[in-house]
């Protein structure tokens, strides 16, 4: 039966089944439909320049056919295709539906909801500014995030390890921490010399709270028997903190890092649209000011790719660092 096909070791070249063919052809087929639909819609609207949109789908068809031919030579490629093609097909169909709903049927009000071809045009025409904005966002995000993580780790380790520090630090953390970082904007704008510095500080603050909280709880919940064993092995305080408590807390710390990352995205976009005169958040509000919603959507697409890439990088780092947990905990 077909379901067993996936269990066959990939080194053996199996004859492509009917199921395989269907999956493989779904992408060029969907792209073809999207292309045809668009051609039909756009022909009723001659003044629209949608050359790049069509070119995109022609490229999709070409690449998917090329990959379909190349799949024989690479088991990795075949697995990747079997895994990803249904998703790609769904994405293409969604874009096609979006195209029909906006440009074709005009069901959504303009200029707020441009069609995909208009968004693609904005993306291409404004690529220099978009790239520049992405770069500024990246620099701001990374500097704020790094600062927040370092601060959060230090305060989290201190609070988690030392009970006097926990006594004095915890109330402060519990009162100040839950205030959303963006609520400090009025204050930081007054205090800080530049909007960029204050934004980095805000992002750091947003990251600091969850990282501190989770690090502290991870450290203070270190299994007592690990510490006992380490003591009987001759461990001093430095070993207990850096070789027992911190490694034991790393799974928790990563939860804090992920929560902090989410908070940093939010703070970044708000800070950029309020104070800083660059970055993707600024770009969105700027484009909105000119009612260029094609650009707004273009920036949202870039943001989605940008943020999810950063998230993926953190996932990879975690898998690397926590390789010892594989089999202990199901991710």
């Amino acid at each position: 039966m077909e379901p067993q096909e996936d269990l066959v070791p990939t080194a053996i070249v199996e004859p492509p089944s009917a199921l395989r063919w269907r999956t493989m052809l779904a992408v060029p087929f969907a792209a073809g439909i999207a292309l045809t639909a668009h051609t039909f819609i756009a022909n009723r609207e001659p003044p629209l320049e949608t050359h790049s949109y069509r070119l995109l789908f022609i490229e999709v068809i070409a690449v998917s056919i090329l990959l379909a031919l190349l799949r024989r030579f690479s088991p990795g490629l075949r697995r990747w295709m079997a895994n990803m093609w249904p998703i790609f097909t769904a994405a293409i169909v969604s874009v096609c539906v979006w195209d029909i709903v906006t440009l074709g049927l005009r069901m959504l009000p303009l200029p707020y909801f441009p069609g995909p071809s208009a968004v693609l045009r904005s993306l291409i025409n404004d690529r220099v500014l978009l790239l520049d904005s992405t770069w500024h966002s990246l620099v701001l995000l990374l500097s704020g995030y790094t600062l927040g993580v370092i601060g959060g780790l230090i305060s989290g380790i201190c609070i988690g390890w030392s009970s006097p520090i926990r006594y004095w630090g915890m109330p402060l953390l519990k009162v100040v921490g839950p205030i959303p970082a963006t609520a400090w904007i009025p204050l930081t704008m007054v205090l800080s010399p530049s909007a960029t510095v204050s934004s980095a500080a805000l992002i750091a603050l947003a990251v600091w709270f969850p990282v501190t909280m989770l690090t502290a709880s991870g450290i203070s919940n270190t299994r007592a028997s690990y510490l006992d064993v380490a003591r009987t092995l001759g461990a001093g305080r430095a070993y207990l903190i850096f070789h027992v408590a911190i490694p034991a807390a790393v799974p928790n710390i990563f939860i804090g890092l992920f929560m902090g990352l989410g908070a940093s995205f939010l703070t970044l976009v708000v800070a950029e649209s309020v104070g800083v005169k660059s970055g993707l958040g600024w770009y969105v509000s700027w484009a909105q000011g000119w009612a260029e919603y094609g650009k707004v959507f273009a920036a949202l697409i870039i943001m989605a790719a940008f943020f999810s890439t950063i998230m993926t990088v953190l996932f990879k780092v975690r898998d690397r660092v926590l390789v010892w947990q594989k089999g202990v905990i199901k991710w």
């Binding site: 690990y226 006992d228 009987t232 027992v244």
Partner: peptide, 15 residues
């Protein structure tokens, strides 16, 4: 370190 201790649970450091 002169008095080693082994528990029922091996308590190996999993990391």
């Amino acid at each position: 370190a002169e008095r080693g201790l082994v528990f029922q649970d091996p308590n190996l450091f999993p990391w």
